[in-house]
Design a protein around this nucleic acid. Structure first.
Lengths: 192, 192
DNA sequence: GGCGGCATGTAAGTTGTTACATGATTAA
DNA sequence: TTAATCATGTAACAACTTACATGCCGCC
C-alpha cells in the first residue's frame, strides 16, 4: 500500500523552521515546482492529522512574530495564521521516511501521447502545444538559474546548500534536455 | 475540470488496429512506459464506458483470428479475449482531443524530495536510492535504443515512424540528462 | 503439479483536484 | 472600489492503485 508523501513534505519543511500551511504551499510551489506539487486540499487536512498524531505542534511564538519564520513573501494582510512547529515524534517520522528507499517516480506527458498519435489529428494544434511547452520550460529554466544564483549568494546557515544545488541541477539538466528536444523536433518538422 | 485521458490512450491505440484490453495494457507498458502508465482498474471499466457510448465496438473478426492484430507477444493460452475496434464516433473524439492544447505535464520525483531534506537523514540510504535510480534509467535507456533500432528496421506502413521516433528521442534525451545528473551527484559526493 | 503468461474483471480504498466559502488588508 | 494577496478550510468529485477472483493453456 502506497503511503501519502504529503506529510513528509510538511515535516521536511517544518524541520527547517516553523511555518503556516499557507507558507508550506508557497514553498512547495516555489522550490519544488519542477518535481513536486501539493494542493491546499491535501495540505490543510494533513496538517490537522499530523497535529492529532502529535507529529507537529502549534507554535504560538512564530504566530506572534510572523516576520521571522517567513522570509520571502510580504507578511502584510493576514488573517488568523496558524504556525506549526515540528515535534520530536515528527522528526523521528521524517528520519524514518528518509531512510527508506525512494519509490519509483511517476511522470505523465500528455504532449508525448499526442505526438505519438499525431497522424490522426491536425498538426497545427500539436505545433502550438509544442511551442507552449517550449516557452514554459524556457521560463522555468531561467527561474532555476535565478534560484541557484540566490542560493550561492546567501550564507549556507543550515549546511544544506549542496543538497539543494544538486536538486536544482536535476531540474536544469532535465529542462535543458526538454528544450533540446523541442529544437530537434521543430528542425525535423521544418525539413519535412 | 480535468478530463480522464485513459480513453484517448485506448482510442489512439485502437486507431492503429483492433485489440483487446489486455493488449492495450501491454502496449502502454511497452511503448509509453517512460512517459505514461495505465492500470487494468482504469482500462477495463473505461473500455466498457467507451462501448456504452458507442466510441468503440466489439470486433468479432479480430477475436476469431487473434494472430493478426497482435504482433509482438505470443498468442498462446488465452481465455475469452474481447477484441475492440474503434467506431467512427471514437475517431471523431480522438481527433477532437488531439486538436485541443495539451495539458501541463505532471511529474513526481520522491528521490529529489529526499535529497532536498537529506541533511535530516542517513546519507547511506539516499546513496542506495540513487544507485537504484541510476541502474533503472540505464536499463530503460538501453530499452529505448532497442525500440528505436527496431522501428528503423521495419517498414513504415502507417507513416507514423517519424512521430514515434520523436517521442523515443524525448525519452533518450531526458534519460541521458538523468544519468548525467547521477554521475555528477556521485562525483560531488566523493569529492566532499 | 506448479508456475508463468494470457485474459477479464471488480471492490475497496487512497489520493488528489477543483470549486467554493469566508474574511481581512493593502495597493492601484 | 476593485483586484490581489494573505489565510484557512471543506465538500464533492475524479482519478488511480491494489488486491483479489477466476480460469485456461503450455511448459518444465
Amino acid at each position: 500500500m502506497r503511503e501519502g508523501k504529503t506529510r513528509y513534505v510538511i515535516l521536511g519543511l517544518l524541520s527547517e523552521r516553523p511555518m503556516s500551511g499557507y507558507m508550506v504551499k508557497k514553498l512547495v510551489d516555489a522550490r519544488f515546482r519542477f518535481f513536486w506539487s501539493e494542493s491546499y486540499g491535501q495540505l490543510y487536512p494533513e496538517l490537522k492529522a499530523l497535529l492529532r498524531e502529535g507529529l507537529v505542534e502549534i507554535d504560538d511564538d512564530a504566530a506572534l512574530r510572523p516576520e521571522e519564520p517567513v522570509p520571502t513573501p510580504s507578511t502584510a494582510g493576514r488573517r488568523d495564521r496558524i504556525a506549526y512547529r515540528i515535534a520530536p515524534a515528527g522528526r523521528e517520522a521524517l528520519r524514518r521516511w528518509l531512510d527508506r528507499p525512494a519509490e519509483r517516480e511517476s511522470v505523465r506527458f500528455e504532449i508525448l501521447l499526442k505526438m505519438y498519435f499525431a497522424g490522426q489529428g491536425d498538426r497545427k494544434a500539436l505545433q502550438a502545444s509544442l511551442r507552449e511547452f517550449e516557452a514554459h520550460y524556457a521560463t522555468e529554466r531561467a527561474t532555476l538559474d535565478r534560484y541557484q544564483e540566490e542560493l550561492e549568494r546567501i550564507p549556507d546557515e543550515r549546511g544544506d546548500h549542496r543538497d539543494v544545488l544538486r536538486v536544482i541541477d536535476f531540474g536544469q539538466k532535465s529542462y535543458d534536455a526538454y528544450l533540446a528536444w523541442c529544437r530537434g523536433t521543430f528542425a525535423e518538422w521544418e525539413g519535412r
